[in-house]
Design a protein around this nucleic acid. Structure first.
Lengths: 241, 241
DNA sequence: CTTGACTCTCACGTTACGTCATAGTTTATT
DNA sequence: AATAAACTATGACGTAACGTGAGAGTCAAG
């Protein structure tokens, strides 16, 4: 299949196909003597994967890394993407919840804080500064001083506690009982404060912690590799419950 | 509130706040003598609206136009955004459906065409070329020659028929019986082929036809203003059923 | 008063294409 | 077979929406 046909079938522009070829993300299997790109069935399957990753907010650079990783397994990737799509839908549910509350707030039916008005737009978390300084030192806090929590103090405290606990466990086996108890706390905290998380959405959220730089950057401030640890623990939790 | 506090509360970076001020999208109510931006409660409410629009894929330019439109009504905007979020969630459901099918395809449990693998990524539609030429002339078809349908021929034919019908009605009242019969066809076609559309999601989709340039461009090829007409008819349909 | 945190403007860089120009290749029409 | 139309290529500038860093001014705490 040449570029126009692929473009029409997939909704991806010809220019995009050129671009993906240029950056080595999707290189057609055949190049004619005239220089025409000929895409194979395999190329189409790869493009589908790319589109899912793109929809999930991955940069092209990152997609390329994933696809060219020696351990890349398509079936696993699909499962991962599926869970992440479900998590994304969960986040959309939260936004819908927020806007519905805002509508009622405007009508005077309920009250909302300014903080609550922005719930759903960001999963960034941040610990209390002083407590963080005591435990992790000034350096870690200075590096994390980007955002305060958008939530009430009680929720923030609990998140803080769970984070610290998990950070200390991060070099252990994410399947261990301790890790699983700690990650259950996280699951409960989310469900108590952020809507109803299915196990699938929970696992998908863990994937997003690793895939989305914003999450990773915030989480790993408490210890290198914490985001990955949490992802693995969340995955195990979802499988065993 | 100064920039850092706003940034921490809302998840929007300081740089973004500067940018929004620069382009006149969100101008703080107060500017100190030192040049510091001071955001008011009203500014925060506007920012929330902006973030919802941004999440829904509006360009900043378009958001600015909407917010500065004389007829802009916040309550109406919230309702519109809510419907659009619901429609977006519907699209996400379709992607989840597609990926689940793909997983089963990979396992050999079912068969999928290449076209089906890309369902959910684009709502672009395109009529049969020859029939379109006969009816609308070469010019319209040449301008629309970007994509073929991703769906089977039967679905495409039905979509084609509905589109033509609606295009002829577009100068009538979208609340008229004729318009409503035609738009019901569209609703049924969507539900028969693209998943389960609630009335809310249907109305939200209509909003997206107007808000999203890709939709508007494709739809309006059959007649200037068709996208808006469909939006209005879909809204009425959702309200009356 | 000093220091650290915060704020400002300026400006270059990044990402992911969109758009247009020019020229070669393939397919359809006469 | 010749011509025209459709398709393909590369090259390159432009766009949108910030991210990043530099350098300087402002504010609050010690």
């Amino acid at each position: 299949m040449k570029v126009k046909e692929v473009s029409q079938m997939t909704g991806v522009s010809v220019r995009t196909l050129h671009h993906y070829d240029d950056i080595g993300l999707l290189v057609p299997d055949v190049l004619t003597e005239a220089g025409y790109r000929i895409y194979s069935e395999e190329n189409l399957a790869t493009l589908q994967q790319i589109l899912f990753f793109r929809e999930l907010g991955f940069s092209l650079k990152k997609i390329k890394e994933l696809l060219s990783s020696p351990s890349f397994d398509r079936q696993e990737a699909f499962e991962m993407q599926r869970k992440m799509l479900i998590a994304k839908r969960q986040q959309l549910d939260e936004m819908i919840d927020t806007i519905e509350k805002t509508i009622r707030h405007e009508k005077g039916e309920l009250r909302m804080t300014n903080e609550e008005k922005f719930q759903g737009f960001d999963f960034s978390t941040n610990p209390y500064e002083q407590e963080a300084r005591d435990r992790w030192g000034d350096k870690a806090v200075d590096e994390s001083k980007k955002k305060v929590a958008q939530f009430g103090p009680e929720v923030q405290e609990e998140m803080n506690r769970i984070y610290f606990n998990l950070a200390e466990l991060r070099h252990t086996d994410p399947k261990s009982e301790k890790a699983q108890v700690a990650i259950k706390d996280w699951f409960d905290m989310l469900n108590n404060n952020f809507g109803t998380y299915s196990l699938e959405a929970f696992a998908g959220l863990g994937e997003m912690y690793v895939a989305d730089e914003r999450f990773t950057k915030n989480i790993d401030q408490f210890g290198e590799g914490l985001a990955e640890f949490m992802r693995d623990a969340m995955k195990t939790f979802a499988e065993n419950n």
